[in-house]
Structures are given as C-alpha cells and as structure tokens.
Amino acid sequence: MKQFEYARAASPADAVRRFEPGTMYLGGGTNLVDLMRLGVAQPDRLVDVSHLPLDAIEQDGDRLRIGAAVRNTDLAAHPLVRVRYPMLARAVLAGASGQVRNMATIGGNLLQRTRCGYYQDVTRPCNKRRPGSGCPAIEGDHGNLAILGASDSCVATHPSDMAVALAALGAEVHVTGPGGDRVIPMPGLHRLPGDTPERDTVLEPGDLITAVELPAPPPGPSIYRKVRERASFAFALVSIAAALDLRDGVVRDCRIALGGVAHVPWRAERAEQALIGGQATGEAFLAAAEAELELARPLPRNAFKVPLARNLIVRTLEELAS
C-alpha cells in the first residue's frame, strides 16, 4: 500500500473543501481498503467521511431519506424499509456478510468497483484500471461478467445488490461537490463503459454522496432475488429487483432491474414498456424478457446468463402476479 495522508472531515462541506486531485473519500472502507491493499486504488490522501452526521433515516411524507453514511445493516433493519421497501431490504441483506454490512455505508455501496479479476490484478491489463491497456476478459475470464451494455473496452459488471433495488425504485442520489449540490435519479448514477470504462459513474471529481432519497414505494408487491452458486456471501450471477402492479389482470405499473449483467444496475425498460398496459400472462412475461434480452451480447463463458436472466424475469413476474 502506498503511503497516504489521512484526515477526518468535520462536515460534508469540509470534506469537499479538503478534496484535491489524489484525494479519495473513505466511508466504511470495505471496498476502498481492499482496493488499496491490492494496489488498484492509490490515493495520496484519504478524507474520512464515515463519521459525518449523514447517518439518519428520515421519513418525509411518503418519501424516505437515507443518509449516505448509514450502514447497510441499519438500512435493512429499519422498520420503514422492511415494511415499505422490502425489495430494498432484501437486496441489502443479499449482499456480502453480516460483518461487511455492519461496516459498509450506503454511499460506498453505490460506488463499489467491479470484481472483475483483471481489474483487481495490477499486474495484468485492464482498461478500467489503466485506460488503453486492453480488456483481456473478453477473450479470457468473463464467466461472471456483462451480457448487456458492454463495450469492446470493458465487460465488467457492477457488483452491488442494493443499487439494483435502488434502480428499480427510482431512488434519487443527493450529491454535493465543488460544483454545488445536485440530485441524480437512479439508475442514472452509473454509466455504461463505452470507451471510457475508467468512469463507473457520472460523478465529478470531489463529488460526495450525501443521501439517497426514496420516492413513494411502487404500488403492488415487490421482490429481490439473487442467483449464486454459493448459498451465501457471494456476488450475484444474476439478480433481479421487480415490482408489479396489476388491476383486473392488466399491468398498470412494473419495475424490473437486473444485477450481475451490466456495468450498471440494469433497468429493464424494454421489458417494462412491453408489459405496461397489457395482460399479465406467462406469454407476455416471456415476450417482455425476450424483448429485453434481445439487447444481450453474451460471450462464450457467460452465455448462460441470457437464459438465466430470462427465466428469472419470467418466474419473478409470475410470482408477483400470483
């Protein structure tokens, strides 16, 4: 690990003031410290934002505001989240381990980096880590990488479970930074790799996530389901966050987001559009899934994710419809 300076921020404004090139914000540290030890992250300076008073979960009418420093455990255990946003509680509980959830913050969870093996190994090429060095995963180890929205530069996936639920819920990410405050609606925080895979998100240097605000929960039942070969403590092969609102067998509203398939938590808008206003039948669910997965460009060793995602969409919708 490279030597660095450490300072605790007194307030969000203080954190932003302390930011200069080479600075990184330290939240729970569960991914950043991991990446620093691997040599993937090499900050000159850490500004610790984990102690900022951003750790409240507050109700605001039918909305819920979650401070960026709220720990994953506390989010999933919060009575309002469990009752009103079960999809989110389940997504958080599906991620990592009890220990990691106790440490990891909401802001940090959103800003996790990919677990692609090439990205994590500084002795191998990776366009995300070293722009222009190449993407060996495309010909190599991509068994758990992206099938949707990938590019010739990068086939990484975003590892977060929570972000998938937030994408389905249409959460808003509150950011403060050198350019002032702004609000970024999910799933717009994360970006596809294109030819600049080094950028995971639309955040600018010095931007600090201060809160995540949830709109009123979508009507109807909701689900988060995660597929993995180890029964716990494993990243998703594919996961799904979905909500379905039916009236008289007709889909009034529908939210579908997929994890483990793309560089972003993938909001399945094509599938949603195909369903809304139509009959909630098995055929319609399959057609919607296939409409979405027409966009898939699988590689030889991750091609299984296409039938997996299709099955998961169909089965999840069937379950929500019943």
Partner: peptide, 16 residues
C-alpha cells in the same frame, strides 16, 4: 491463476 481470493474462489459457507 485468476480469482486468487476467497471472494471468487468459493469454498462452502455455513449456509451451504
């Protein structure tokens, strides 16, 4: 080798 860690080389967890 790639996946040289316990996050990617899965050994059974308690839940398995």
């Amino acid at each position: 080798f790639l996946r040289r860690d316990l996050a990617q080389y899965h050994i059974p967890a308690n839940a398995d």
